[in-house]
């Protein structure tokens, strides 16, 4: 299996990861990950179950300490995030952890009180957009509604960096659509200081719903067995990655990312083999996912 990670070494990286590894006992959960995610990008983090997506996100927000290497959010080390950075950060975990005995509004107010940019009207508008019931206790909400609440909690302070760990896994299709809208078109305008350039929101979203992801991402990071298998702009991947029959490549062909012995096909990066630029065909995200994980 060939792997290719093409990090964008930009100076304005919102998220940077350098040689990050994580071990639980003898298991290598994350292995030597290096990544630069530019500001304003929307990164889809995809991979099979157990590939290390959640662990990577938890390392990024400092919930899990890496065994080696480091990560930084908005220039601040992940394991020691300062309050100004936390105020610009939103995180939705795979399993929402909430005060189950609190009322929904009380929970919103409790968390919201810590953020200067929090606006109650924005929180309520988001809740309305996602059809989140505001009455009753958090513990009485369904799993999907608890997930909606954690999404509202992560979005209502208008964060600059948003990390989402399978946020739509418990949501119905209608709510998923509204959720995706909320990520990019906030129900109320974003808070920009007068005279300042518009703030860009960087989003990393881990999900198995690839069709949803495909519509919104600017970049895609494929993970496999704790490593970044492939990271690039989605437009570039669409343009340059081709699915070819194995008969069209030889052992000396450059840029073969992976081969599929069942279908006798391979994925080729045409930037390394320009002669194949018009051979084969481009792939959708789910198709590429399957080919990379055979």
């Amino acid at each position: 299996m060939n792997t290719l990670a093409t990090p964008h070494a930009t100076s304005d990286a919102a998220v940077s990861i350098h040689k990050l590894s994580l071990r639980y006992g003898k298991a290598n959960v994350l292995q030597d990950i290096t990544l630069q995610i530019p500001s304003g990008s929307v990164v889809g983090l995809v991979g099979r179950n157990g590939a290390g997506k959640s662990s990577l996100l938890r390392c990024l927000v400092g919930l899990t300490a890496p065994s080696s290497g480091n990560a930084a959010l908005l220039g601040c080390p992940s394991n020691d995030l300062t309050d100004p950075v936390r105020e610009r950060l939103g995180f939705v975990a795979q399993t929402p952890d909430l005060f189950e005995w609190m009322g929904v509004v009380e929970m919103l107010q409790t968390i919201g009180s810590a953020y200067p940019r929090w606006r109650e009207d924005r929180a309520l508008a988001l809740a309305s957009q996602l059809d989140l019931p505001l009455l009753g206790n958090v513990g009485k909400l369904s799993g999907g509604d608890q997930q909606k609440l954690s999404v509202v909690l992560a979005l209502a302070h208008d964060p600059d960096v948003l990390l989402l760990d399978e946020p739509v896994s418990s949501l119905d299709p209608m709510t998923r659509r509204e959720f995706m809208r909320a990520l990019f078109t906030s129900p109320l305008a974003r808070d920009n200081a007068p005279g300042q350039p518009e703030r860009e929101r960087t989003i990393i979203i881990s999900s198995h719903l690839l069709a949803d992801l495909e519509r919104v991402v600017t970049h895609v990071a494929f993970m496999r067995q704790g490593r970044i298998q492939l990271f690039d702009a989605w437009d570039a991947l669409l343009e340059h990655l081709r699915l070819l029959p194995l008969t069209q490549v030889t052992a000396h062909t450059l840029g073969v990312l992976c081969t599929n012995p069942q279908t006798q096909t391979c994925v080729l990066d045409c930037r390394l083999s320009p002669q194949h630029a018009h051979a084969g065909r481009a792939m959708a995200l789910d198709e590429l996912f399957v080919e990379l994980n055979v």
Binding site: L63, D83, R86, D97, I111, A114, Y115
Partner: peptide, 8 residues
């Protein structure tokens, strides 16, 4: 988990 500011 919410990565809330430490003040809270």
């Amino acid at each position: 988990q919410a990565c809330a500011p430490i003040g809270l």
